[in-house]
Design a protein around this nucleic acid. Structure first.
Length: 274
DNA sequence: GTAGGATGCTAAC
DNA sequence: TTAGCCTCCTACG
């Protein structure tokens, strides 16, 4: 269940378990069978993530990359050898003597060329996990945001503007900065945007490290606030995501939810002012 | 057993 | 704006 941190973590985990050695490749489900046959026995040379797109680079092929996008349902499951018999929903299984990994339900799993891979990079915006160490990542996004009448909540989800932010991070980062999700991009100040970007860099890095989304500051954790522990099951500790109608951790007001661009938005009207 | 929803995105209207 | 993709899990009878 993927936002950008998940994909970068997957790139690292694939490299660690399978990098530099030949892999066995198969597609028990069948949809990737021809390509898996081509991959079988080749060496995974490199892995890369940009936003929610994962690229596995194999040697010895004319088309060098496996392009994976998990979409909403896609899942990846790593395990130690021996691999159990695959279920019939496994689109791609990679295996070597120590490890296996199963890919299920991706929106995309395809062999692509260098040129096709480059075209994907070209249509994605800066990724805080790729461009967080350089000022131009924030600046590039700001050029689009500062001119847009679209809400900041929608802009943050637009992968052409920022790559890797999904529904959890957008809700949480707007809460953390006290910004009303319905404010237009052009109504943000440069200072506000810089703070959001810097925060995304930190949050996503922490997400890669922990392999889950934690956004609550130390002073607001359940222990620090004398609250009962989190009951939601989506991963880490959050302020507003999927907390509709529950009291805000900070102001006690009711968290609101609304549909925005076919996704559920969550925010605290008390803490997030226009 | 069935329905509905989910951390996503695209193409078509 | 809507349907469609594709899988897993939960809630509800």
């Amino acid at each position: 269940m993927p936002e950008g941190h998940t994909i970068h973590r997957l790139a690292a985990d694939h490299r660690e378990r399978f990098g530099g050695r030949p892999v066995r490749a198969s597609s028990p489900q069948g949809k990737f069978a021809d390509s898996a046959a081509l991959l079988d026995g080749t060496v995974l040379e490199t892995t890369e993530a940009h936003g929610k797109h994962l690229f596995l680079g194999f040697g010895g092929l004319g088309e060098e990359w496996v392009h994976i996008h998990l979409g909403l349902f896609g899942k990846v499951n790593f395990g130690d050898a021996p691999a159990p018999p695959p279920t019939d929903t496994v689109r791609l299984r990679l295996a070597n003597p120590e490890s296996y990994v199963d890919l299920r339900g991706p929106t995309t799993c395809a062999l692509i060329t260098d040129a096709e891979k480059q075209a994907i990079h070209d249509r994605l915006g800066p990724d805080p996990l790729r461009d967080g160490d350089y000022a131009d990542g924030a600046a590039k996004a700001w050029r689009r945001i500062s001119k847009s009448r679209t809400t900041i909540a929608a802009l943050l989800m637009d992968q052409k503007i920022v790559a890797g932010v999904g529904n959890v991070y957008r809700a949480e980062v707007l809460f953390r900065h006290g910004i009303d999700p319905y404010r237009a991009g052009k109504d943000l100040t440069a200072r506000e945007w810089t703070a959001i970007w810097d925060d995304l860099v930190e949050l996503l890095r922490e997400g890669v490290r922990l392999n889950r989304i934690d956004t609550v500051r130390p002073e607001h954790t359940p222990e620090a606030m004398g609250r009962p522990p989190r009951v939601d099951d989506h991963g880490g500790e959050v302020y507003v995501y999927r907390r509709a109608h529950l009291p805000c951790h900070i102001c006690g007001g009711e968290i609101r939810t609304a549909g925005l661009a076919a996704r559920n938005l969550f925010w605290c009207p008390g803490c997030q002012q226009r």
